[in-house]
């Protein structure tokens, strides 16, 4: 998504559905902000495997950082993966068995 679309309020499907309304009916639906922070936390569990980190930026964008100091501002979840791909120079494949193994270990740690 380009920055202009961001200004125009284009929403990625993961953003659109992260609104409390979309979660409707639940006992205590999370606020948009809570959902966003939770999302960042989960994404970081995955990005840690690739030595990358994501931070929320003003509830509007995300900042992706590498350990070598590369930084990029991205608008939505899909853009996180494409920016990460450029940073590390390879695709981040969620079906990669070593990543899956790493995540399973992470799950037992928590």
């Amino acid at each position: 998504m380009c920055s202009l679309c961001g200004l125009l309020g284009e929403a990625h499907w993961t953003d659109r559905s992260a609104s409390p309304k979309a979660f409707g009916g639940g006992q205590r639906p999370p606020t948009r902000r809570q959902e966003r922070l939770y999302r960042v936390k989960l994404v970081n569990e995955v990005l840690a495997y690739f030595a990358l980190r994501l931070d929320d930026w003003q509830g509007q964008s995300f900042v992706l950082r590498s350990r070598t100091g590369k930084t990029e501002i991205v608008d939505d979840l899909m853009a996180v993966w494409s920016a990460a791909e450029t940073m590390i120079g390879r695709k981040l494949d969620p079906t990669d068995p070593s990543l899956v193994g790493y995540l399973k270990q992470g799950a037992t740690r928590h």
Partner: peptide, 16 residues
């Protein structure tokens, strides 16, 4: 978990 599903699907679609 909807958030995990969104993360997983966007990552899968970006890579494959």
């Amino acid at each position: 978990d909807w958030t995990a599903f969104g993360i997983w699907l966007t990552m899968l679609l970006q890579s494959r």
